[in-house]
Design a binder for these strands. Structure first.
Length: 263
DNA sequence: ATGTCAGGTCATACCTGA
């Protein structure tokens, strides 16, 4: 089973890129972030024609998350992260697909820091950590996939000095992310590519893509029940170079099938 | 400090968020 996460940065304006990538990469499950589309403006028909069922949580102008499933409909298990009933931003949606619980998240950017946006980011990360503990206690196979807006280490950024005051790289953000990981999650891409430079985002400024001035902020975290099934992981970085591409590239894992029980 | 996008609007020129 191939599971991908992709911050599309506007699903309607990037639709040709998304459809081309789905056709070429054929993931079984896709977590999308930054739809930037109201609920009724989600391109359901185009995705259905491409062979994908979908659930989504839209929002006008900003945010928005979706889960796609090839050849069927995802079974929705949750929408919205618990812990703050006043949070109106569409940043979390979850589904059960072929025995795996798929959490799709778009963590707040948090800039400028310090400030209310940074506080919101740290609060969101704390809520995610609390919820993550709940998920782990169930013992279920879980993937938490999405745009975390956190650069975990110096090795995940082309030039750490440039990002030292950024909300994606500040010590508070990294410490909170590492507390989440320390619960027992496996950072799938880093686990299989421990000594490789891997980036998932290249911003539109400063010719970043051509210079490979990237950062790694899109992550797939696996619960212990799933870590043993991790077969491969990677980034479809060429997609970032396509015409009218998002500033992120699709990031994916492949899980081995569950072994059939003997009778 | 700069720079590039997309969405949105008291719209064809700015603002915001990223």
């Amino acid at each position: 089973m191939k599971i991908a996460t992709y911050n599309v940065n506007g699903i309607n304006s990037r639709l040709p890129v998304l459809l081309r990538w789905l056709d070429e990469s054929r993931p079984d499950v896709v977590c999308l972030q930054e739809l930037k589309a109201a609920q009724e403006r989600f391109p359901r028909a185009a995705l259905e024609a491409a062979g994908y069922g979908a659930i989504w949580s839209g929002q006008k102008s900003w945010n928005g998350v979706a889960i796609l499933r090839r050849g069927g409909e995802p079974i929705e298990t949750r929408r919205g992260l618990p812990g703050d009933p006043d949070d109106q931003q569409s940043r979390y949606i979850e589904a059960a697909i072929e025995g795996v619980l798929i959490g799709c998240l778009y963590l707040p950017n948090g800039n400028p820091a310090p400030g209310p946006k940074f506080d919101y980011k740290l609060g969101w990360l704390e809520r995610l950590t609390k919820y993550g503990r709940r998920l782990l206690r169930t013992g279920a196979p879980v993937v938490l996939a999405g745009d975390y807006n956190v650069i975990p280490t110096d090795f995940d950024v082309y030039k750490p000095e440039r990002w030292k005051d950024d909300a994606l790289f500040l010590p508070d953000s990294r410490a909170a992310f590492h507390r989440l990981i320390a619960q027992g999650w496996t950072d799938a891409v880093r686990h299989l590519h421990a000594n490789e430079r891997v980036y998932t985002f290249w911003d539109y400024f400063r010719n970043s893509w051509a210079r490979n001035a990237g950062i790694r902020i899109d992550h797939l975290l696996l619960s212990p029940a799933l870590a043993g099934r991790l077969k491969s992981a990677g980034v479809d970085r060429e997609v970032r170079g396509w015409h009218k591409s998002s500033d992120h590239a699709p990031t994916w894992i492949v899980l081995t099938k569950t072994r059939r029980k003997r009778r």
